[in-house]
């Protein structure tokens, strides 16, 4: 599903070059649920951005479902984000003025999908917030907002969901519910899930935990 080989990312801050990823190699198989843990500033977010086709590596290669990503243009990347990848963010990133339904429909607008309303409603049902379809983000709880965000990630039936600290802004009960949703999507629908988190208890829901430090993977644990 995901193959990183020797991925390097260097940011230029004026004349100083700051290496953020220093030759990352890893493989994540289809249908896996993987957690990535590491201290802040270790380069997790940059890794996720490249994995999510929001950014390109400085060198090295990245293959997603056998497709070489590294040479693609911006608009092709946008197409891949739309069709194959669903994002879930720590801060939800919902459009504040749109209803839950409107937010979930958003990827379908750019994917040229038909029956958008019905498909968006289905996605909301899958994560259990169909009853909030007409509400705006500010009118529902944090846990519900994150469910709406997951519905948005799901609506185009992606093969990969990338979640960057999805429980970082939630209380422990909501966090558990959100993680349960991810596990369900992974086990029942076979969607590959990559989860970045600080919290060990969240990470332990994955089959595999990758430890990331100073721009490199430095070890992995496989859960029983």
């Amino acid at each position: 599903m995901i193959t990183f080989s020797n991925v390097v990312k260097v940011y230029k801050m004026g004349s100083i070059e700051v290496p953020v990823l220093r030759g990352v190699s890893c493989t994540i198989s289809k249908g896996e649920m993987v957690a990535i843990m590491g201290p802040s500033g270790s380069g997790k977010s940059t890794l996720m951005n490249i994995m999510g086709c929001l950014d390109q590596p400085t060198s090295g290669t990245y293959q997603l479902e056998g497709q070489e990503i590294t040479r693609l243009k911006d608009d092709d990347l946008a197409g891949i984000r739309n069709k194959k990848i669903g994002f879930v963010f720590q801060t939800f990133n919902l459009l504040p003025w749109a209803s839950a339904l409107g937010n979930v429909e958003l990827p379908l607008i750019y994917g040229g999908g038909v029956q958008r309303r019905r498909r968006a409603l289905e996605a909301l049902e899958r994560v259990g917030v169909a009853h909030r379809a007409r509400h705006r983000p500010s009118e529902i709880s944090g846990g519900e907002q994150q469910r709406v965000a997951i519905a948005r990630a799901l609506v185009n039936n992606p093969s990969l969901i990338l979640a960057d600290e999805p429980t970082g802004n939630l209380d422990s009960r909501s966090s558990e519910e959100i993680v349960a949703i991810f596990r369900g999507l992974n086990r029942e629908e076979g969607i590959t899930i990559v989860l970045v988190t600080h919290e060990r208890s969240i990470a332990e829901n994955a089959r595999r935990i990758l430890h990331f430090r100073d721009g490199l993977f430095e070890g992995e644990e496989v859960m029983a």
């Binding site: 929001l54 911006d74 946008a78 984000r81 994002f87 958003l106 750019y110 994917g111 948005r152």
Partner: peptide, 16 residues
């Protein structure tokens, strides 16, 4: 800006 970021993340092309 954030809205534009969200739209791009879910697949909006430059042209869109």
């Amino acid at each position: 800006t954030r809205e534009i970021g969200i739209r791009k993340a879910v697949g909006a092309k430059r042209r869109d």
